[in-house]
């Protein structure tokens, strides 16, 4: 009989194999707690799990960030384009608003004055620096004549000296050949404004005794029958009192920068316009009171 000729080793192994599940059933009855011998394994498992979890999170975050960046970038580009377009429109509106304001001022000036004015645009400057002239887009066809005053709402610019049919040359008050009758607004002293350089004029034939200082306003005198009386010409920049001269040498800075002027008015007729009417009345009244 081979009953006793069995392999003991194999039986033990078989028993262990079969008993282990039975033991494990007994262990799992206390599911809320890990058995003392289980803890190291659990700890290891946790560590590994945490590691992989962290890794997967990192990959997830990186991937989602990358995808977000692409989305943000494209969204950003869209917003930037929209912003640029809005900025351009805003600039356009601002420019239109400024132009509207400017044209409104011009229109108000034209409406509120007794002078007959012809609006014109500056289309050209002179070829050489020795002459200070501008070209406007109105000529004899529009009723312009030589000697007519050219001004802006801020002040006098010059006068027409070479009209053609469609355009005209305007001699600026800063040109060396330009001579304009002028008046010091404060003291009423008359003089002559002559052009000197492209941004300065000289006021001549003002008596040494006149009490004037830098910053005083010079206006048109009205005696030359070109400009209406009392229109701003310039501001005193420098006063030179020469000992051997009976008059002052006064440097004047024009109120209008002719290099930046775009629109002008040509005075077809001055009417009875006098910008110093009220000031004249006050001055005369004061003078009469003094004489009494």
């Amino acid at each position: 009989m081979n009953f006793v000729n069995f392999n003991l080793k194999k039986i033990v192994i078989l028993l262990i194999v079969l008993s282990l599940p039975l033991i494990s059933i007994n262990i799992e009855q206390k599911a809320t707690q890990n058995a003392w011998f289980n803890r190291p394994f659990v700890f290891l498992a946790q560590s590994v799990q945490n590691l992989f979890f962290g890794l997967s999170r990192g990959v997830q975050i990186t991937t989602s960030n990358y995808i977000n960046i692409i989305n943000i970038k494209s969204k950003n580009n869209e917003l930037q384009n929209e912003n640029n377009e809005l900025k351009t429109r805003l600039n356009l509106f601002t420019e239109n608003l400024n132009e509207l304001e400017r044209l409104r001022t011009l229109l108000d000036f034209q409406k509120n004055t007794k002078m007959e004015l012809i609006p014109a645009q500056v289309i050209g400057r002179n070829l050489v620096t020795d002459h200070n002239t501008i070209t406007i887009n109105k000529g004899t066809d529009h009723g312009l004549k030589s000697g007519q005053a050219v001004l802006t709402v801020s002040g006098a610019v010059g006068y027409i000296f070479k009209p053609a049919t469609k355009t005209s040359h305007v001699m600026l008050i800063t040109d060396r050949y330009s001579v304009v009758d002028a008046l010091i607004q404060k003291t009423r002293a008359h003089g002559l404004i002559e052009g000197k350089t492209k941004d300065t004029c000289v006021l001549q034939y003002v008596e040494r005794t006149e009490e004037i200082k830098d910053g005083d306003l010079i206006v048109t005198g009205g005696l030359d029958n070109i400009f209406p009386k009392g229109f701003p010409l310039g501001v005193i920049n420098n006063i030179e009192r020469k000992t051997k001269s009976a008059s002052l040498n006064i440097e004047v800075k024009p109120v209008v920068d002719a290099n930046k002027v775009e629109e002008v008015f040509v005075v077809k007729s001055t009417g009875t316009e006098n910008f110093l009417k009220e000031a004249d009345q006050v001055y005369n009244a004061g003078k009469a009171a003094k004489n009494e």
């Binding site: 050209g124 002179n126 070829l127 050489v128 020795d130 002239t133 070209t135 053609a164 040359h169 040109d175």
Partner: peptide
């Protein structure tokens, strides 16, 4: 021709 562009 130039005098048409300038007061020179």
């Amino acid at each position: 021709c130039l005098t048409g562009f300038s007061s020179i």
